[in-house]
Simulated scan of single mutants.
Amino acid sequence: MTPTRTTAPAGRRSSAAASGARTSAKSGKDDGSDRSPKTTKRASADNALAERDADAAEQTMLLVGARIRAMRLRQRLTLRDVAERTGVSVSMLSMLERGVSTASVGTLVAVASALGVHMYDLFAHKDGADPSPVTRLDEQTVVSLGEGTTRRVAHNDAAAGLELAINEYDLGGASGPTATHHDGREFGLLISGELTIELDGQRHVLQPGDVIAYSSDRPHRIANTGSERAVAVWVNLDES
């Protein structure tokens, strides 16, 4: 005798299926079953690229830290000497030299100035046999570090003591966690967005087209306080 199989009424089956669908949707969990091989492959490639970039950034900071330490020792400066010249703590400087801390752009600018160079000089560059008056975009040094700031050094003239950069600040981005100071003068022209420059504890809000100029030995910090990414042209000039 053939066993009798009990079948639920169609209405009940539909109700159960709908309940299961609602439960699945409510859980919001993605088991990956709807991902195509192409999507998975692209995600893997993106992860590999991110890991490679992270490794490259780590290696860069190790080299920069070693270069800073070598410059400091050649000038017979202690970490406390550099701290007094910049406003950057001794512990942060120590971690920077050991390559275990991702410093902000503002910190690197201040430390470089304390050592008598520009931030550009802390990074490796290709030697040009025949210097051209034109610096191509792909030849410019781009530094993207902590605090949501990217600095592209468009031109560096060691003889004139001038560094021309394009600074970009993410929402909430800043030159550093605290104000720093160093030798020289700075000139900034805001291209887009909004920037607040904290200068000697006083706040100056810039709108597109506004320019600010000040002596770099005054404690200063630059922050994006607007509602969009901010872009500015910045010039650092040695007074010597």
Rank of each mutant, 00 (worst) to 15 (best):
S104W: 04
V82L: 14
G173F: 03
R152G: 03
A10C: 03
Y169M: 13
D30K: 07
E58A: 15
V142W: 03
D130I: 15
V231M: 12
N167K: 00
G99M: 01
A16L: 11
D55T: 14
L190R: 00
A112K: 09
I68G: 04
H155D: 05
G173E: 00
A230E: 12
T107N: 15
V142I: 11
A129Y: 09
A56V: 11
A18I: 07
L162Y: 02
H182A: 01
I191Y: 12
D217V: 12
T149F: 05
L199Y: 05
L63H: 10
R98H: 13
A230M: 13
T40G: 10
G148N: 15
L137N: 10
P208N: 08
S33G: 09
T150I: 03
D170V: 01
H181S: 14
E194P: 02
E147L: 00
L164R: 04
Q75F: 07
H182Q: 04
T6V: 06
R221D: 08
A112Y: 07
Y169Q: 02
T150Y: 00
M61D: 14
D81P: 07
A21W: 01
E198S: 07
D238M: 14
I197L: 15
D34I: 02
A25P: 04
S33V: 11
D81Y: 07
Q140F: 08
E51D: 14
A110V: 05
A103S: 14
A103M: 10
A54N: 13
G201F: 02
D130H: 13
A45F: 05
E194D: 00
R152D: 05
G148C: 08
A110D: 09
L77D: 09
I212V: 14
N167S: 12
L189W: 14
A16F: 03
V134D: 01
R72W: 10
S132A: 07
A8Q: 12
A124V: 11
K26I: 06
L122K: 04
L195N: 07
T39K: 06
A160H: 13
V88L: 14
S104R: 00
P131N: 09
N167T: 12
A159E: 09
G188S: 11
T6P: 00
S14G: 07
L49M: 15
V111N: 07
R152Y: 03
I191C: 04
T7I: 12
G32R: 05
Q59K: 15
A18W: 04
I212Y: 02
A114T: 07
T196E: 15
S216G: 04
T196Q: 06
T78Y: 01
D127I: 11
E139W: 02
R151H: 10
D46A: 15
T6A: 12
E84V: 13
M71N: 11
A154T: 11
S24W: 08
L195G: 09
S94M: 05
R218I: 13
E84S: 13
F187G: 12
V64F: 06
V82P: 03
L137P: 01
T196A: 09
V117C: 14
S94Q: 11
A18D: 05
A16H: 02
H182K: 06
M71I: 00
R72Y: 10
A54T: 08
G28P: 07
G32L: 06
D31C: 00
D81I: 10
S240Y: 09
R218L: 15
A114K: 07
N236H: 15
L206N: 01
G28R: 07
V211R: 07
L162I: 13
A129M: 08
D121N: 13
W234M: 10
A223P: 02
G188D: 06
K41Q: 15
V82G: 03
A50C: 01
